[in-house]
Design a protein around this nucleic acid. Structure first.
Lengths: 350, 350
DNA sequence: CATTTCCATGTAAATGTTTACATTTTTTTA
DNA sequence: TAAAAAAATGTAAACATTTACATGGAAATG
């Protein structure tokens, strides 16, 4: 691979001049500029951005850690981050934590070794060594899908409490009283915890007793929704509606309900969280709480880059709006409950 | 940020020794090793992997370009690439081409400037300047979701022809004769082209006349499937079955069919391609051609890294197996066709 | 015409590691 | 115990750029 030196030799100028035609061509005379351009072609010169980063002490790289790249909601956020970052000349090194704190920690380490200028993390543990170390070093950092609204770390997220509240309220307005929740594990996901708080508060506001048996903590995948709903429907007093911590769980729950013969939405109303693109394409269409995933990523990148530029800035916290999207997976409580229950216990349905 | 030099000074050794305790600790005496370790702690030393890459001329980074990160099938492949790459100490810089050749070209450029040691690309244009340049420079390169089985570029993919053939054959065996295809645009996607060839060949083998009116080229997203199927169902002689170039289109087609009142699967059988995780969770479950997406990514990374290690190696081509996964979105031709048609033209259905 | 200003270019140091080679110290061998 | 071998450490150059500063010549100014 040829270097700036080769180009300089061929064009009979100094390396400084070559560097100048690359970085500020207007400052070098047209003739030399031309000569250098030709020399570059002649030796198939390839610019080395790493070497530049090495001397300018800027890698123009940022790190991005999400729990699961296979979840389209995070994929959208990744797009948001990349779109903004690319426009500013930055690239992103992407990592999956798989909702595991150890992987998150390891990723932080290798990304920092690679001199990322900042990190965007959807963290699995808000009070862990990872974030503390980053903070101690005043390392530019933005939390995504965050629940924090103040404190030293910049963060962008949505109002999960309110999202949980709206979801539950929607179900209550439809006449439901026995409302279950399929929640992500609170220990990995403070988001899920906040949604649960919203759910509980809404029940209380409507004088519906909270029944812990109706709340199941599991993981965020399709199969967890499927198994979770089966467990709930097998209860002595099964729910007539369920609020799921994300759309995967909700879609899993739909399938699980179908498998035990519960008709949707008559036999069970389901609300999800996220509003992934596919939510309006499944049958019945999924009622869900919309999160502006792309926008969250974009904004996260914007905040991070501003933070990188002026490292003394105050932390920024942004809470984006969610909204309930009502589709066909939720319906009023019409069917006679006892009947459904008795048929459920018999284990066969139509 | 403190450097190896600071550590050396504190531990009263040379920088070479510090480097040695980092890279081959066994070669330095336990006492010095200890002293150096302490010094590192003392000045909060952070290893700079970029500086190392600079001197060793290895970035331990590879570039990965996919058409759409929001498609879970590609997300799975990304995971496959990352899992293998990380194990070998590599990181991946990820880029989205959005199925646009210009973006693909631009990404190649910036990734090469960043000294990625190799590229894994799901290309949108097999015979373009991008790949030619890469090839001319003997740049380590692996094509993913590739249709090529020979030639100078390493590639891993599936047998798209056969996939298209199986999908069509399945529909024919169910009794369908009017089988449409919702295809990705052949100009961006040679995969789609090959699937179409499989589809045509299968029709011919079963003496079913090929009707170009039943083949629609569109993009790969949900809404394209939805609109596409509506166009097809509005034909004078609508299809009774449709083979879609990916699962998004198929799921979109389901929704589109529902919207014009066609019952699934009785009124229309649908076959997808990919077998994304959600395919077995929707209703009806999607019959589709399975692609080993994760494995493809993993294998691509493996081939690329082997290529990086010995750059003289012969190109490697791997064709992975697909298989049809039969679910509920396809059914035998039972309903009387004319009846459905007449009701279709009236525009209202149950 | 002498001085100042400006423009274009060159010089050389700096960035944080690794590593071939050299040197010193310790251990083994005869 | 001297010589040889092995182990531990040091020296310094190299990697591809950028950039502060220097330099020389041309244009502008008095």
């Amino acid at each position: 691979m040829s270097t700036i030196r080769d180009v300089a030799r061929i064009a009979a100028v100094s390396t400084a001049t070559v560097s100048r035609v690359i970085n500020s061509p207007e400052v070098v005379s047209p003739e030399t500029r031309n000569r250098v351009a030709k020399a570059m072609k002649a030796c198939r010169y390839q610019y080395n951005a790493l070497a530049r980063g090495f001397v300018t002490q800027q890698s123009y790289t940022l790190g991005l850690i999400v729990p699961s790249i296979t979840n389209p909601i995070f994929a959208e956020s990744i797009r948001g981050v990349q779109d903004f970052a690319h426009r500013e000349g930055y690239q992103a090194l992407l990592g999956n934590s798989d909702y595991e704190y150890a992987k998150e920690a390891r990723l932080c380490e290798v990304l920092r070794e690679r001199q990322v200028e900042g990190l965007i993390i959807t963290t699995t543990k808000l009070r862990g060594k990872v974030l503390r170390d980053l903070l101690d070093d005043h390392f530019p950092l933005v939390l995504l899908y965050s629940t924090v609204r103040k404190g030293p770390i910049s963060a962008v997220g949505v109002d999960n409490f309110r999202g949980g509240y709206s979801a539950t309220e929607h179900l209550i307005h439809l006449g439901h009283r026995r409302i279950a929740m399929l929640a992500g594990r609170f220990s990995f996901s403070d988001k899920s915890l906040h949604r649960w708080h919203g759910y509980k508060k809404c029940l209380r506001d409507h004088r519906i007793p909270y029944d812990p048996a109706l709340v199941l903590q599991t993981q965020y995948a399709l199969e967890n929704g499927r198994e979770g709903i089966k467990a709930l429907l097998a209860l002595e007093q099964p729910p007539t509606a369920v609020f799921c911590s994300n759309d995967f769980m909700a879609i899993g729950a739909m399938q699980g309900a179908r498998e035990v013969g519960v008709a949707l939405p008559e036999g069970l109303s389901i609300v999800g969280f996220d509003d992934m693109a596919i939510a309006s394409y499944i049958n019945p269409g999924l009622t869900t709480i919309r999160q502006p995933a792309y926008e969250m990523g974009r904004l996260g990148a914007e905040i991070l880059l501003s933070q990188i530029k002026r490292r003394d800035g105050r932390p920024i916290h942004k809470i984006l709006e969610t909204g309930i999207v009502v589709r066909e997976s939720t319906a009023g409580l019409t069917v006679c409950e006892p009947k459904r229950n008795s048929s459920l216990t018999s284990g066969k349905h139509v």
